[in-house]
């Protein structure tokens, strides 16, 4: 069982990102779950979304999770959300930030000794899609760090997931995914 927790602000597309990932993974014959914690959520409020992936049918519906990957798509949540909650010894963190990994860890000592990767999904999204929607670039970074799927296969699959959007936006998303794949460190 592979488990992923997303830290996001409502409106940044974590739910769409988690569902998009589930959609792609499902086409490869694996079983998936994508869900989120909702309250009376307001745009901008900190929230979490989740993925489970397994070769078997997923029976577990508990919300509690010890994640293999933590994806942080808003830079400030590193400081205000409990991003290391219920971590495992080998939990991998991928964080959206303009800082280098060393600078990030220096600014948030909680991440000391963890496997941390950084990529500026906000900047990538602004420069490609034209809006600070960092969800699809984060998936590009996840593909690089996890080696889950070949990036070309992943992009082709994401084109299908995004098929209802205008072609221009789909193209921009593909560039964003590739850039995050190339730039994550």
């Amino acid at each position: 069982m592979l488990e992923i927790r997303w830290h996001s602000r409502a409106g940044q597309g974590a739910v769409t990102g988690a569902k998009g990932l589930a959609d792609v993974v499902s086409t490869t014959g694996k079983h998936v779950q994508a869900f989120a914690f909702y309250g009376s959520a307001k745009r901008g409020a900190a929230m979490t979304a989740y993925n489970r992936v397994d070769d078997k049918v997923i029976l577990n519906h508990e919300k509690f999770m010890r994640p293999d990957y933590v994806l942080v798509i808003d830079p400030a949540l590193v400081y205000v959300a409990d991003i290391t909650a219920n971590e495992k010894d080998d939990t991998i963190y991928i964080v959206t930030t303009h800082m280098s990994t060393e600078e990030l860890i220096a600014s948030q000592p909680k991440l000391e000794g963890r496997k941390v990767y950084t990529v500026d999904c906000i900047k990538i999204a602004q420069e490609t899609i034209g809006k600070a929607i960092p969800n699809t670039p984060m998936l590009g970074a996840l593909m690089k760090v996890s080696g889950m799927y070949d990036i070309e296969f992943f992009k082709e699959s994401m084109v299908k997931v995004l098929k209802k959007l205008p072609q221009k936006i789909i193209d921009a998303n593909m560039i964003a995914i590739q850039r995050a794949y190339d730039e994550v460190k």
Binding site: K19, D23, H31, V32, Q33, F35, H61
Partner: peptide, 12 residues
């Protein structure tokens, strides 16, 4: 169906 746990959980 269970609110959110089924209604907002995407599965195959």
């Amino acid at each position: 169906q269970d609110g959110f746990m089924t209604s907002h959980t995407a599965q195959g």
